[in-house]
Nucleic acid binder design. Structure first.
Lengths: 245, 245
DNA sequence: TTGACTAAGTGTTATAGAGCCACTAAGGTA
DNA sequence: TACCTTAGTGGCTCTATAACACTTAGTCAA
């Protein structure tokens, strides 16, 4: 039932402030590979609540400018890292009365994958410090604000899961890379080694890469350089990596 | 920076109503199989806005009672169908300035799978009618309120995708069922036939079912009845169903 | 120049879980 | 008792994976 006869009358009388609305934020787990380790980006909060604590980057939707939730996420990411074209994926939305001291709150969690090279971490007025932390050190060394530890764990699990059947890790590498570098990146995210021939066949047969034409030279046999085709950023393989038998 | 020295002082001065917060709702695509067809539950809105239009069931979080978002979803589902233990999965969260005439709004979309038998659809003060609609008729026959058509499509796509590598459709059947009935349910959701032997091997080798001991008799050879083991409600197969060669 | 070293890249077989299809089994019914 | 229908199986092919030894192409030091 409604006491309003027309929708127009209803909307004119409507004010969101009369209702008990939850607080809404967007948080991100931004992953990259540095120094042969999977790392996640943390910020030190420069604002209440939990001022001074480490947290996943995030914040409020700017209802004046953001046209969607993923825009909010990308805006936050760009502010911290300068990266304009990340791989971004919505992971899960968490809500409850206890997760934020300000009351019933909801956060939409995203994860992002970016290449480490050329990224410069920049603090802003919401965060006094911005750092990369190896995921292995999470949980012990760094105590996160709110429920960010469990949000981080969900994002990490999602990433580790997807490595097994998708090409997602290509988004962690620079524009051109060798197959060995790609394999190493997969291994770092997976947490185990993979067999060289199987890996190369899997990637090459998928047709998600193309040769740049250039070679990477070093102290041994030069390696072909590849780049990702547009459709290769989120390719799904017909089977998972099975791992050792 | 913050003008408050302590978090306590900050929280005492904090009022959510000073901020431009988005509207938050929870919506659900509730699926079931009736009359050999995959169907989705729709409600006719009894409230502004979009009064009188068809929509996915959903509504606001009850900040007094709900302890999490999935509780909100389950509460809505139970109110409409009476089903207390559905399979529920969060699908995606949608937000934007245009999707609701009341302003910048966010909806957390869930999908649910329930067995059709024994379900009684009950209207309440938010919905004047509650009906099952075959998914094939969606888009043409029923025009949904807000952006519910595209939310529905995302949920349907997620379901169709997951059928290929998970046991989710077991949640669409009553407590005991035959392998042929299970196969038929998979085929209905998949939208194509599957090969009998492969299907049985796949399901049985997974160890997600157990025999009830009883048989289903009819006008031909009796069939063994199975029930789902607890871990079988969301089992993931090592490979997808490949389909015809 | 050459041989050792290193990392890139390949040939080949084994394996697991899928598809295919014809077969047998067990009930009803005329 | 013959026949129909659906349940359930045997055994083959096919495909993408794992395994592992092998070849190739560069650097570097003697």
């Amino acid at each position: 039932m409604s006491e309003f006869t027309s929708e127009k009358a209803f909307l004119e009388a409507y004010s969101i402030h009369e209702y008990d609305v939850p607080l809404l934020t967007v948080d991100m787990a931004i992953f990259s590979v540095l120094e042969d380790q999977l790392q996640v980006l943390l910020v030190k909060r420069a604002q209440h609540p939990s001022l001074g604590k480490w947290a996943l980057p995030g914040g409020f939707v700017d209802t004046k400018r953001d046209k969607s939730l993923v825009e909010t996420a990308k805006r936050k990411l760009r502010a911290k890292t300068g990266v304009a074209t990340p791989y971004v994926e919505q992971v899960e939305t968490f809500g409850g009365p206890e997760r934020d001291p300000r009351g019933w709150s909801v956060t939409v969690a995203y994860m992002a994958l970016i290449p480490a090279e050329g990224v410069e971490l920049v603090p802003d007025d919401a965060s006094s410090e911005v750092i990369w932390v190896p995921v292995k050190e999470m949980g012990s060394e760094y105590l996160l604000a709110f429920d960010h530890q469990s949000i981080f764990e969900v994002c990490l699990e999602r990433l580790k899961n997807k490595v097994q059947y998708s090409s997602l890790p290509v988004n962690l590498l620079p524009k051109a890379f060798t197959l060995t570098e790609l394999q190493r990146t997969f291994e770092i995210v997976l947490g185990q080694t993979v067999e060289k021939k199987s890996f190369r066949r899997r990637i090459l047969d998928a047709g998600i890469l193309e040769e740049t034409g250039a070679m990477k030279t070093g102290s041994s046999r030069p390696a072909k350089l590849y780049r990702v085709r547009p459709e290769g950023q989120a390719y799904f393989f017909p089977r998972t990596i099975e791992g050792k038998r």
